[in-house]
């Protein structure tokens, strides 16, 4: 960890001029993101984890800064990743004072973006490092790659459209590590259908697996002053 920090400091020293621009950009971006205090959105959520066979979920997603989130599905089950890997970009960006390293312009899928690395100054923060790809023209982050202390690395892709002004995406794709899941066979008494489809993921189930969550935001209602009760029991 110290090595990385040292390396970063060295890098920071060499790219001082650019870093200042990067820092400004980062804070501007964060400010914009933080203007959204809460929102209510109709969403379609697709969870793609090898051991989870969950259909596309439609529901209403409630968010309240900084970290309250709830999916309401009209009597159905709500299923969200655990709290610290939140579905909002605000949770993937370090808070407080941040050391920003400007990695310069990059082109992703034909779009000119600027890559920033943000390191929180608080050593105890869950986030160790966040790489942010920023669309400077619209002042939105189209991708964030956050390395956390407890939850591995989380990557978030954001596609913007109707709500660019608020920095809110139309579509978010989250890539994360998931632990393997297994119940003893005796407990479940499976019907072993012996098809290849069910056998395939077995080989891949060693070690941590990749999981993807894809959320399509259909309609936002922003800053309506959601009360905490909305997030209920916790």
């Amino acid at each position: 960890m110290r090595k990385i920090l040292l390396l970063c400091i060295v890098l920071a020293g060499t790219l001082k001029v650019k870093a200042d621009d990067g820092t400004k950009l980062f804070y501007a971006l964060r400010t914009k993101i933080l203007t959204v205090k809460d929102y209510t959105a109709d969403v379609k959520m697709k969870i793609d984890v090898s051991f989870m066979r969950v259909p596309q979920l439609r529901g209403t997603l409630y968010f309240k800064a900084p970290d309250k989130m709830r999916l309401e599905r009209n009597g159905g089950l709500s299923m969200l990743p655990k709290k610290n890997i939140n579905l909002t970009i605000s949770n993937l960006i370090p808070s407080g004072n941040v050391t920003v390293i400007d990695m310069g312009p990059v082109t992703v899928k034909g779009k000119k973006l600027r890559l920033l690395k943000a390191i929180p100054e608080d050593d105890m923060a869950n986030i160790i490092l966040t790489k942010i790809w920023v669309d400077e023209a619209n002042l939105v982050a189209t991708r964030a790659e956050t390395t956390t202390r407890n939850d591995g690395t989380v990557i978030m892709d954001l596609d913007f459209g109707h709500y660019t002004n608020y920095g809110l995406p139309d579509k978010v794709t989250i890539y994360m590590n998931v632990k393997d899941y297994k119940l003893p066979k005796g407990v479940t008494m499976d019907y072993n259908d012996e098809t290849e489809a069910t056998k395939a993921p077995k080989s891949a189930s060693q070690g941590p697996q990749k999981g993807t969550i894809e959320i399509n935001y259909l309609k936002y209602a922003i800053n309506t002053g959601l009360s905490d009760d909305k997030f209920g029991k916790r």
Binding site: F51, M52, R53, V54, L77, Y181, L183, V187, D190, S205
Partner: peptide
């Protein structure tokens, strides 16, 4: 709950 998968319907 299956032994190797979590299915939601």
């Amino acid at each position: 709950l299956k032994s190797e998968a979590f299915v939601m319907i």
